[in-house]
Structure formats: C-alpha cells, structure tokens
Nucleic acid binder design. Structure first.
Lengths: 140, 140
DNA sequence: TCTTGCACCTCTAGTCGCTAGAGGATGTAG
DNA sequence: CTACATCCTCTAGCGACTAGAGGTGCAAGA
C-alpha cells in the first residue's frame, strides 16, 4: 500500500497541512502511523474523514458539532436524531444570519447611494454611522 | 459639568464596560480624564464616538476600518472618497456572504428534509457531509 | 556520492474582537 | 461606619486557525 504524506492528503482533501496537524492535535482526526523518519502516513479512510470535516466546515458547522457528527458516522446504528438536530440548528442560524445581512445590505446601499463624493461633512456614510436614527431599519 | 462614569457610558452607548476599556487600549477611543480616585470620566462627545463605533461594529466594519472612518469624521474637510470606498467594500462583502449563505441554506434544507429520522446509516445529513458530490450546488 | 531544495517535523506565538476572572481600590446609600 | 456596587489593572482564554523559527527527511540530478 502506497503511503499518503500529509502534503498529499492536503492536496487531495483541500485542507491545509497545518490545519490537518491542528485537527490531529484537538483530536478531531486520529494520529496516523509514522514513517521511519517520523513522517505522518495516511490511509484512504483518513482522506474521507478529512473531506467530511472540510465539507462540514464549509457549511459552517463548529468543530464541536463536527466532532459529534463524526462520532455518529462512526456508529451507523445510532439514531440520527442528533445529526438532524445539529443540522436544523445550523439551518436556523443561517436563516437568521441571512435576514440580518439583508438588513445590513439595505443600510449600506443607502449609505453608498447617498454619498455625494464630496467632502466628509456632507458624507452620508459618516452621517449615518454617527446617527443610528438615520438608519432605514433602526432596529438592528 | 456632570461626570459620566464608564458604567453610565456603557448604559447609554450599549457598549459593555470591558469593551470600552478595550477600545481605549487599542487607541480607538482617547483616554478620558480621571477622577480623584483614578476613575474614568467621560464627556458627552465620547458618548457620540462610542455610538458611532457601536453602530459601525453592528454593520460589521472591522476595527481598522472604523479607525479610518473616525479619522475622517474628525476632519470633515477631507474628501469622503475613503469612507465611500470602505462602505462599498463592506457592501460587496455582505452581498457575497448573503449569496454564500443562501447556497448553504439550500444545502442544509436538503439535508434536513432528506433525513428519515431513522438510523445514521440512512441519514442524509451524514451522507451528504461525507460525499460532497451529493450537494445541490457542488461548487461551494 | 554529494548536494540541492523541497517537504516534513515540533514548538511557540500571533490573529480578531472581545470576555472572564483575580485581586484590590473607590464611591455611595443607609 | 458598614455594606455593597462599581470601579481599577492585569493576565489569560475563546475559536479556528495561521505564521514563523529552527531543525530533519527524502528524492532527484550532477
């Protein structure tokens, strides 16, 4: 069986080398075998695990949530209620974040549109920042 | 003139006490006068500055961007081109973040809907995480 | 065989924007 | 005068990495 170096694992998974070592350090990834010269040597299954972690991180799951999801994956006979709950909680977070960002977007658009490109004392960007009451939706 | 304590400033600005001290430490807020017993005593203008900072933070501007915006506010004869550029950059960031979060939302909805509430080995949440190819939009 | 040069190793410290806590001083109300 | 809240400084911690120092391993070309 061919040895997968950490660099190769990084290339194939899209997770950076120091990040892989970091994941090992926090116990998200189990420590792999080492070569003669003390270099990490990964198995194909480690690549799957790394891909799982990367995908979950891209979806914004926190490390602790990923730790739970990985435990669930390791024991497929468990109920998937936890996985479901974690994903639902994340969905709610994302929905709230989108709503909040849409409000910010409206605010920033107002600011940028109102800017007459003159001097600061007529600048709507500064003015709105200084006076929350001038916001489109003052409730953020 | 009545003295505004740090606690009062916190109450009026909505910025927490340790955060006010932190802003002073990083030079975002100038150090106020002190009372006999070494306690900070703020002026009304400090409250405006704090409100400005708070509002800008709520809109997601980074500390360094706020530092620049405050400098602009302090010198109203400057061109507001910088303020405009900062706000525009922030707007673009926010728009990108919204797009990205909408993609995540679609993904998470798929996962949660597909979950049959059975065992982990039939769970779509785990399955999709393990295999990026099963994503709705595989390009995130 | 030797050397070049990249990839690997460990370890510590830094990033951002706070937040928490220790341990002590001050200010105010009863 | 005594409680008690609020204030002070200082250090360390959070999450999820990232950067850098200082050293070792390894494969390929001269």
């Amino acid at each position: 069986m061919k040895k997968i170096t950490i660099g190769e694992a990084a290339r194939q998974s899209g997770v950076k080398v120091p990040t892989i070592r970091y994941y090992e350090g926090i116990g998200l990834l189990s420590a792999p075998n080492r070569s003669e010269g003390n270099q990490r040597s990964y198995e194909p299954s480690d690549l799957n695990r790394l891909a799982f972690i990367r995908h979950a991180r891209e979806l914004g799951f926190e490390i602790e949530a990923i730790r739970t999801l990985l435990q669930l994956q390791d024991d497929p006979h468990q109920s998937c209620a936890s996985a479901d709950a974690i994903a639902k909680a994340r969905l709610i977070e994302v929905e709230q974040r989108i709503r909040s960002l849409n409000a910010l977007k409206a605010e920033l658009e107002q600011m940028v549109e109102g800017c007459g490109h003159g001097r600061v004392d007529q600048c709507r960007v500064i003015e709105v920042l200084a006076d929350h009451g001038k916001c489109v939706h003052p409730h953020h």
